[in-house]
Amino acid sequence: MALVDLLLVVGIIAGVYSLLAIGMNMHWGDTGLLNFAHAGFFAVGAYTSAILTTPPATGSLATRVVGFDLPIVVGLLAGTVLAGLVGVLIALPSVRLEGDYLAIVTLSAAELIRLLIHNEAWLTTGAQTLKNIPRPLDATIPFSYDLFYFVLVWALVGVCYLLFERLSSSPFGRVLHAIRENDDVPLALGKNTYVFKLKSFGIGAAIAGLAGGLWAHYVYAISSIMFLPSITFLIWAAVIIGGAGSYTGAILGASVIVFLRQITRFIPGDVPFGDQLSYIRLMVVGVVLILVLYYRPQGLLGDAERLQAGTSE
């Protein structure tokens, strides 16, 4: 594979992760909510779109009896909306909880989603891989398909970036920031903080669902082990490295992490420790995270002044 092709693949993954990080930044950067269910929203988007755009499986070994063969646009939209709804559903009972408890509940919820996917074979093909997910305009692109998909994904990243940036700087975003700082204050100022938290959760989850759909339609085949909590942790690392509260930071952080993880794939297996590469890749992310937190606690593009404000008592 030529280097350009390689970079395109890395770029597509970076785009998908950027969407995930944009959603997470609304939760954590804007609203201060500890969401650990992101892999679950990603999975809901991927499976929804995959199920809606493929026919039911046929043949004697077929387990999946559901499939709709609908256009891909419908699948992507439905995956986005359903992930948002699942986000609200998870948030309804949990979003009032103090930080750490919210983290535990959302982490369990994401695992629950993954186990449901694993077990409900009639809907998802269960432990087997859900295959033959169609690619948009597959046969009609006259040039490199990866180039087309790269442009598609990053165009969507651009649109979402502008939308979330606008929301964050709007009066709506101002209430989210107030919740992040101290949620008694917006409450005393007449804001229904519970409803604002639900909205934040739903919107961020929806964008993770969109990322899931884009991922499913790129890789042809998905299975439940693709949606382990490690994805959530990587997205957290991306948001923190990029700088919580900054949407450009979220995109940069996601891109840095994807790049770091993907370049280590091309180290040959016969170098020392070559057989331990998958662990080393995780360690690299950890080391970068620690270095950033140590030398630049606000993250690469975070606001140092905001972090400092009020800490000098």
């Binding site: 009066p171 101002r174 209430v175 920031h177 107030a178 992040r180 700082e181 101290n182 008694d184 204050v185 917006p186 005393a188 100022l189 007449g190 804001k191 905001r306 972090l307 404000a309 009020g310 800490t311």
Partner: peptide
């Protein structure tokens, strides 16, 4: 005083 430390003075006001 429960000022919102990480928000600017103007935004504290507009929030209300």
């Amino acid at each position: 005083a429960q000022e919102l430390t990480g928000m600017r003075v103007m935004d504290n006001m507009l929030l209300a």
